[in-house]
Design a binder for these strands. Structure first.
Lengths: 339, 339
DNA sequence: TTGAAAGCGCTACCAT
DNA sequence: ATGGTAGCGCTTTCAA
């Protein structure tokens, strides 16, 4: 059944049916009732594709993420989708799997769908692809990449603040030997976090040795191995900060397996505050980055750009906060004595 | 830029451009080259919506899941998407959040997009909605729900087999007091698992008491609480099977907090084999249900139905297998003596 | 307030 | 092998 059938059954033109459907112009109350009844009786529902073709704007936003299986993203996707649904928009999800090639496919798909905007939530991005979008005047919002500009907004996460808080928290517990397990250096966001850590230590006049920085893979096993290495150090750290929560959870496990108690023997701090963090034992002290806030900002940026709120993008900053749970505590006394 | 512009620039008709694009009919090599060059130079890409409108079939499959944040689903989604991409199809994801109301929205959206088929991977489903799809001759594939029929296939997971294997594994270790932490009884799949457990015990002539069956929520905290209850029992179980892996991980934690060693003091078995299971400590013995196989079956069913491989759906059975890791072991000797 | 009709960009059928 | 063109189902002027 299509709009024509409904129109005939209601004894009106297709234009009127369309008007009823979209509330795009006043329709006589009785006419409207007739149309609605016809819709009801025929079980009619409008065809999205025809609709998108008919009107220039597509009512769809693209959402590009790197890996739906990474616990950081599902919550972001959910929030974004809810917002979209509330505003009568569709969401086209693109998974890059960290592959530049798939990223290109994603962008292409966005173009083919004639999306009204794209949220690029991966921290890596080929400038060439960005240009493809900009050329078509498609609003973009980035996460931690690029600057705001015409039609493009940017969401920055205040890593430094969160890490400063965490370091403050640890130094208040008298920790001085603080290690860091970084993510893959090919991820820009991982490098930013590592650098923020170093600069935070510098600020507090704490020495940072190369040996106290290990590399994980942003997954549990990487955190585990990196922690294993840290624990074999002749002068073992009393606290370990991690580039993300999965890494920290791996560190927790490594400590446990090595017979160390957390936080009595060693403290561990994560980053992101994924759901799992509050459920592990001991529950993880971590730096929260609100996914729903990222989603909200991203959506708002796109929605604003589409609706001429401003042709020029904005640079948002997402605050971070320290969530203190059970994985951090005072430096062990024997370590204090050793100093 | 649209197909008309490309056609003009290449000095051919739009029909020819379309043919080049879709390889739907032979085109002279030189003509093709001209067309491709024009496409290149104009940066043209076809409009999906126009395409979907022009041809009756939509090249899109709907994929309905209950919760993208549930670790069971992301992998399923990824596999399904890869298959779809390989076959030049789009995937429209619908998240029900376990709400019947959202489920209805999802189905509606599928209809509006004129999808070529729908994979309903939630175990709950309103028959009325199914009818809406069937009426439009849209192929459907279910997970653990409904029977195969005209245009509808079904994927059943062989829960019983997996649970039998697990019970065999435990009884080989001399376990006789085996508890079960079930999922929410409102989930059909949770009930099936619980019943399979009971029937498996019966088969082996092991008594099962009501007190040995607790209820969780398919998440870590639920598993933890349920395990806490089990541990306070005067006659504590020596092994615990769980309705899913998150529950089992919660049970692991509860045991650890209670000062019990796994598997020396108590064995734990999970279900699903999510990625996390191999990463926790001790790593979890569990029953694997291959998400990629589910995805493959679902896609194949839909693809087959669309391409007239058979108008009548098929009932697939997904095998399960026992993955033995470190969370299971011999029954503790003191428990043996007590018997 | 309503209707008629011109597209939107593409596919597919009929000619040539 | 190629071109012409009638739809696909809807939105959106322009008139009435």
């Amino acid at each position: 059944m299509n709009i024509k059938g409904v129109a005939k059954l209601a004894g009106v033109s297709t234009a009127t049916v369309s008007r009823v459907l979209n509330k795009t112009a006043p329709v006589d109350a009785r006419t409207e009732r007739r149309v609605r009844k016809a819709i009801e009786r025929t079980g009619y529902y409008p065809n999205t594709h025809a609709r998108m073709l008919g009107s220039a704007k597509s009512q769809t936003y693209g959402l590009i993420i790197s890996d739906i299986a990474n616990p950081f993203f599902p919550e972001l996707v959910k929030s974004f989708e809810h917002l979209a649904v509330d505003h009568n928009h569709e969401v086209l999800i693109g998974n890059t799997d960290y592959h530049p090639e798939r990223m290109e496919q994603c962008v292409r798909r966005m173009l083919e769908h004639n999306v009204a905007g794209v949220a690029i939530m991966t921290s890596e991005m080929d400038p060439e692809l960005v240009r493809m979008l900009s050329k078509r005047k498609i609003p973009i919002v980035f996460l931690d990449t690029g600057k705001a500009g015409p039609l493009t907004s940017n969401i920055s996460i205040d890593y430094q603040h969160g890490i400063d808080l965490a370091i403050d928290h640890l130094t208040a517990f008298k920790h001085r030997r603080i290690a860091f397990i970084q993510g893959p250096v090919k991820f820009k966001s991982a490098v930013i976090r590592r650098d923020a850590f170093i600069s935070s230590l510098k600020r507090d006049g704490i020495e940072t040795g190369e040996d106290l920085i290990k590399t994980g893979n942003h997954s549990i096993d990487g955190g585990r191995h990196a922690m294993d290495e840290l624990l074999t150090l002749e002068s073992r750290p009393t606290a370990v900060m991690c580039s993300n929560d999965l890494t920290a959870i791996g560190a927790l496990m490594a400590a446990h397996i090595a017979g160390l108690r957390v936080p009595e023997d060693i403290s561990v701090v994560g980053f992101d505050d994924i759901e799992l963090s509050s459920l592990v034992h001991p529950s993880l002290t971590t730096i929260r980055v609100s996914r729903s806030e990222i989603a909200t900002r991203a959506f708002t940026a796109l929605y604003g750009a589409t609706n001429k709120t401003g042709p020029h993008g904005i640079n948002y900053t997402i605050p971070t906060e320290l969530i203190v749970r059970q994985s951090t505590g005072p430096v062990p006394t024997n370590a204090l004595l050793a100093t």
